[in-house]
Amino acid sequence: MFYPKLKNLKKERIPDYSIDKLDWWLGTRRQNTRKFVNPLQFSLDCNIDINHALKLFSYCTFGQEVKLLRKKYVTLCPICEHRIATNYQEPVKKGIRCNNCETDIPNEYFVDHISIFFELLESPRDYIPDIELESESIIKKAPSLRVSEVMGNTDEDIRRLCPPKKFFDML
Rank of each mutant, 00 (worst) to 15 (best):
D49T: 10
I50E: 08
A53R: 07
A53G: 12
A53C: 13
A53I: 12
F57K: 05
S58E: 11
Y59D: 06
Y59A: 04
C60K: 04
T61A: 11
G63M: 00
Q64C: 07
K67H: 07
K67E: 15
L69F: 13
R70M: 05
R70Y: 11
K71E: 14
K71L: 11
T75V: 11
C77Q: 01
P78T: 04
I79P: 03
I79Y: 13
E81M: 00
H82F: 10
H82I: 03
I84R: 11
I84P: 05
I84H: 05
N87D: 15
Q89C: 15
P91Q: 10
V92Y: 05
K94C: 12
K94D: 12
I96D: 14
R97W: 03
R97Y: 12
C98H: 11
N99A: 07
N100D: 11
C101H: 12
C101F: 02
E102D: 11
E102V: 13
E102W: 14
T103P: 04
T103V: 06
D104C: 05
P106S: 15
P106L: 09
N107S: 02
E108L: 02
E108Q: 01
Y109G: 00
Y109V: 02
F110A: 03
V111P: 01
V111A: 03
H113Q: 08
I114R: 00
I114H: 04
I114V: 06
S115N: 07
F117S: 00
F118L: 11
E119L: 06
E119Q: 12
L120Y: 03
L121P: 14
L121R: 15
P124W: 14
P124N: 06
R125D: 15
Y127V: 14
I128C: 04
P129L: 03
P129V: 03
D130R: 02
I131G: 07
E132D: 03
E132F: 08
L133A: 06
L133R: 07
E134M: 05
S135A: 02
S135F: 00
E136F: 00
E136D: 08
E136K: 02
S137G: 09
I139T: 06
K140L: 10
K141L: 13
A142R: 00
L145T: 00
V147I: 04
V147D: 09
S148G: 07
E149R: 05
E149L: 07
V150C: 04
M151I: 09
M151R: 09
M151T: 04
N153T: 05
T154C: 09
T154K: 12
D155A: 09
D155T: 05
I158H: 08
